[in-house]
Design a protein around this nucleic acid. Structure first.
Lengths: 207, 207
DNA sequence: CTAGCTTTGTGAATCATTTCACAAAGCCGT
DNA sequence: ACGGCTTTGTGAAATGATTCACAAAGCTAG
């Protein structure tokens, strides 16, 4: 498959959300124009985005909503479930555990770790918080697809290294640091400070 | 000022973080090469990014760390403080209130709102949670620069409309919806589902 | 003051993404 | 079955972002 831009993938994800709404409303087909309107883009963009993966529409008619939902789920890898380890049982971790969309989209949190003795052993949404020091033994027999890192900045890189050694191939990182990992491991960093600062920039230079 | 790409602003934000580290270590000057190395980009990119805003370096020598820190803070609008209203006193809101980096970078949460009667009236980090219904009266005499929206999807747009009517010019949105606002209002949406799905895509199509 | 070394700042070139524009397809009504 | 209407899929053009490459500038040592 030829390389597809990240911006394209993000839009596909958006289209999928809109399509699921349409599906819930019982709408059977949708045009690229309709998808674009609600997604903040153009119909040409929608068609180009989809064309990277195939021809899913019917000329003169548009796209079948259920069919396109299925296709997009497959493209985005959402037609399977993922086993997720949560590293860091703080406030953000807690919010994630409870976030419905997480499980709804196929991501199952199967293990939670922390270094705080006050948290270790406590039950959290049906899971016992384990000691981060025991990561290796705890995950020896559990296949983990993805790790969510919610730790202070300085703890993140060492933990990432250990997770990679355990065979984890994807990390969603909330720690405010740039992680270094082998090229076959995917990292996505969500950096709140960065968002605030781009907002602050816009506010001072435009608004 | 000519239009500068968002990607450039995000990198400036990153450079600022690195420079602050250098400053703490007492390093006086830094080259574009050194800034690039730690920031995951190239020296040419660093110089181009900075060149949009001026010439801050000395040829043959590099950039003065404290000077560049000052310049970047000014460019990003971080040389002032912002009054922030938090809408939604749930888990994520709670994590934000306690996040040190928030206050550290000049963002002061001065009001918290929720619709849940169980939460209204309770004290939260020195602030009393107020009823979202009373947004207008509560903020009548408080100048709010920015709002952080942490509500269920369906509540977000109506609240955004009311905030805009109150003169708020920037919204950091954690609700999983695309907000519609006048063009002089800046919205930045942090969408967890989107991040998960791009990660899932990479995982199935590369890893 | 000059030679040699380093590093910036920036046009030009390359590479990537978005938009345009239109032929090809398919539906509907007669 | 045909004409008119709609909407896709996609090369080509336009726009945007990154990388290249080098002259200009400044420092250091002798």
């Amino acid at each position: 498959m030829r390389k597809v831009a990240e911006s394209t993938i993000r839009r596909l994800s958006l289209y999928l959300r809109l399509l699921e709404e349409f599906e819930a409303q019982g709408i059977a087909t949708v045009s690229s124009e309709a998808l674009a309107g609600r997604g903040g883009t153009t119909s040409a963009q929608v068609r180009k985005d989809l064309s990277f993966f195939g021809s899913f529409g019917k000329r003169g008619l548009g796209y079948s909503v259920p069919e396109l939902v299925t296709e997009l789920r497959a493209i985005l890898g959402l037609d399977r479930r993922y086993q997720v380890a949560l590293i860091g049982a703080g406030k953000i971790g807690s919010a994630l555990v409870q976030y419905r969309g997480f499980r709804q989209r196929g991501f199952d949190i199967v293990a939670i770790f922390d270094v705080d003795p006050a948290k270790i052993g406590r039950e959290w949404n049906g899971l016992v918080v384990q000691d981060s020091a025991a990561l290796e033994t705890a995950l020896a027999h559990e296949k983990i697809d993805m790790a969510v890192l919610v730790t202070p900045g300085e703890a993140a890189q060492p933990l990432a290294d250990r997770l990679v050694a355990l065979g984890v191939k994807a990390i969603l990182n909330f720690a405010p640091v740039q992680l270094t990992v082998p090229h076959d491991v995917v990292v996505k960093t969500v950096n709140l400070a960065l968002e605030l600062e781009t907002l602050s920039y816009e506010l001072t230079n435009r608004g």
